[in-house]
Design a binder for these strands. Structure first.
Ligand SMILES: [Mn+2]
Ligand SMILES: [Mn+2]
Ligand SMILES: [Mn+2]
Ligand SMILES: [Mn+2]
Lengths: 161, 161
DNA sequence: TTATAAAGTTAGCTTTGGCTAAGTATTGTT
DNA sequence: AACAATACTTAGCCAAAGCTAACTTTATAA
């Protein structure tokens, strides 16, 4: 009830030069927007990568196995496969196993490589494998081309620019 | 129509010992579950960190400014502030500016520090600041304690274990 | 002090990605 | 061939985050 009601400080052209790079509201917004965009591709990336893995390991990708590996229910997989199909990444007929389209294969390959780079980078930093795999699962979706390249070159020759 | 219908290979106890760490379906599922959990905290973390920033910079945090910095609409901010309030992280009365609870302040401080560590680490790797800030905005939510410690120690003395 | 502008909220919609319960299809076993 | 077990789908639910349009409140300016 009696809480203070401060006005908006319209006298704030201060900008006390604290940040190095430009730290405008606009550029910060772009960063958050970019993260939101990355999250939208995340499901697709993890699915196609996993489907490719299963095909290599078992000769085929079964929804039940996808569900088990992802830790989600079978209906969730069914629904997400429909989305991936809609987006042209997988081929899936009812009660059949799952295949990747050419586009799906290409995406899976990119994701597989990126995943390995991130894991190997973390291991090169001294992180133990189980944790490297854990963190990579999330980090992989937020690594720019530049950062990925830096990770790769560090892995190959640590501490050299 | 005439698509092949492969059976499930029930003869697959092969496990050709390709991976170093344990790569069971169960441990892979745990990693994905952990990423999903991280995504649930992400909105809260970015909001409290930003609110703390705004209070430092402008003396207060206004919804309109939060919306601009995040690149989302004002109604989205209103709705998310209600969630943060429900979760005990902010104090917000209608038409007033936003305050952090003690819990919100504590979370903001953790996030602020983690953010700086990730950014500084990427810069130490040779990534330029604007890209470091960009990637950190996503990566920060997926870094374990161990990895964060490794980032910090690398920043302080690169290439030493 | 009144009018206008800006800020904030409410209502209602959307997509994503999770779930359970229940039904159908396929596969494996007798 | 019949039955049981497993896999898969469908239907229907939920919460999170986003949006626009319309309305209300607060702040600014005439
Ligand atoms: Mn992943
Ligand atoms: Mn993420
Ligand atoms: Mn962030
Ligand atoms: Mn941040």
């Amino acid at each position: 009830m009696t809480q203070k009601t401060p006005e908006i400080s319209s006298s704030s052209l201060v900008s006390q030069a604290s940040e190095g790079a430009d730290s405008t509201a606009g550029s910060q917004a772009e960063r958050f927007e970019s993260v939101r965009r990355a999250h939208q591709s995340e499901m697709a990336e993890d699915y196609v990568e996993l489907i490719a893995e299963l095909i290599v390991e078992h000769g085929e990708a079964r929804p039940v196995e996808i569900a088990e590996r992802l830790g989600v229910s079978q209906p969730t997989v069914t629904k997400n496969l429909a989305r991936l199909k809609r987006d042209g990444l997988v081929i899936h007929a009812p009660y059949r196993s799952v295949f990747l389209t050419d586009e799906g294969k290409a995406l899976a390959e990119i994701c597989r490589k990126r995943h390995r780079i991130v894991v190997n980078f973390l291991k090169a930093l001294g992180i133990k494998e189980s944790i490297a795999e854990h963190d990579a699962e999330g980090i992989e979706h937020h690594v720019s081309k530049e950062t990925l390249a830096a990770f790769e070159s560090f892995t190959q020759s640590p501490s050299k620019p």
